[in-house]
């Protein structure tokens, strides 16, 4: 039993979460390198269709659970279903996407079972039979190899973008129906209405050029620097989260996991450190220019060009130069 790897696959009833497919890629790699067998796990209601879809990938089997109490996500029923499955099957690993949903649920599962959870991993390493997970710490400026010291199963969540879903190996797997008993689950947390601020917002997804500003701008009065630059290159203005939290720009200009996803031809990241939650929203831009005074800012790991320096100096100079030539 310890020779199994499970991948929990998230979905919204219709589509599979892209990060879950990336997680399945990680599962395939780990299965190959450790000689373990890989199974995909789907929880939901009427998910046989999705299970059939997953069966087209190279996995040993797709295990799915249909249960009315799993139709809408609640941490209570998800945790109970997974506890039951992990207690009888005890795989070596349960891999999951580091999604908002799993991060709400997985730590509870981990504490309930007394099994370690390694969150937000970007990679793994295998040396002399020992498996360690790689994740970022200290504001994404340092990497850490993390060893797990508790008995299997180990629970692991994978950061979005750590693998390419295109790398999934195709195959043909059997589909297995696995029942769980959720009759004792008590739902204490009730889900209410969803508020969508996206309805009448500025749509940045079509912008050709975006000048994005981060906390490095320091105060509202400095925002003119950004507006001037945006004017010259005819750009939309975007922002990282702290700028929006400070009300220096409206919430609908936030770029990142809880904001918009953009892919302009040119993205200027000014005084933005490059936290993953920001980067997921802009990393597919064609050309990224980062202006930052910290040589170790993670934004330089995704940018095409980086200017190391004080934005107070660089931005006006850049605006002036561009005004001359455009």
């Amino acid at each position: 039993m310890k020779e199994l790897i499970y991948v929990l696959v998230d979905h919204n009833g219709e589509n599979i979460n892209p990060t879950s497919l990336e997680t399945l890629v990680l599962g395939q790699e780990l299965a190959e390198k450790t000689g373990r067998r890989l199974h995909a796990l789907l929880l939901g209601c009427n998910v046989r269709n999705l299970a059939e879809q997953l069966a087209g990938y190279e996995v040993d089997s797709v295990i799915y659970t249909d249960n009315a109490l799993l139709e809408d996500y609640t941490f209570e029923s998800q945790c109970e279903a997974l506890s039951q499955i992990l207690k009888t099957e005890t795989p070596a690993l349960l891999l999951m996407a580091h999604s908002y949903q799993n991060i709400d649920m997985a730590p509870r599962l981990s504490a309930r079972l007394g099994k370690a959870l390694v969150t937000d991993c970007v990679d793994f390493k295998l040396s002399e039979g020992e498996l360690v997970f790689v994740r970022k710490m200290f504001r994404a400026k340092l990497y850490a190899d993390v060893r797990v010291r508790s008995e299997p199963p180990w629970l692991v969540t994978l950061q979005a973008g750590s693998r390419f879903a295109d790398a999934l190996v195709k195959g043909s797997a059997k589909v297995i129906d696995r029942q769980v008993d959720l009759s004792s689950v008590e739902i204490k947390r009730v889900t209410g209405e969803t508020v969508d601020f996206a309805k009448d917002r500025v749509d940045l997804s079509q912008a050709e050029t975006i000048v994005a500003v981060g906390r490095g701008i320091k105060k509202q009065e400095n925002m003119d620097l950004i507006r001037d630059l945006a004017d010259v290159v005819n750009a939309e203005i975007g922002a990282s989260r702290p700028v929006v939290d400070n009300d220096w720009l409206s919430r609908d200009r936030q770029i990142g996991s809880s904001g918009q996803t953009v892919s302009p031809r040119l993205y200027l990241a000014i005084g933005i450190s490059g936290a993953i939650q920001h980067v997921v929203g802009m990393k597919s831009s064609q050309c990224i220019v980062a202006i930052n005074s910290d040589r170790n800012a993670p934004i330089f790991n995704v940018a095409t060009y980086g200017i190391l320096g004080d934005l107070q100096e660089i931005v006006p100079a850049l605006t002036k130069k561009l005004r001359e030539i455009l």
Partner: peptide, 11 residues
């Protein structure tokens, strides 16, 4: 939640 959406929960 993801992508600028929010959800009310009652506890």
């Amino acid at each position: 939640m993801e992508s600028g959406r929010f959800q009310w929960l009652e506890l």
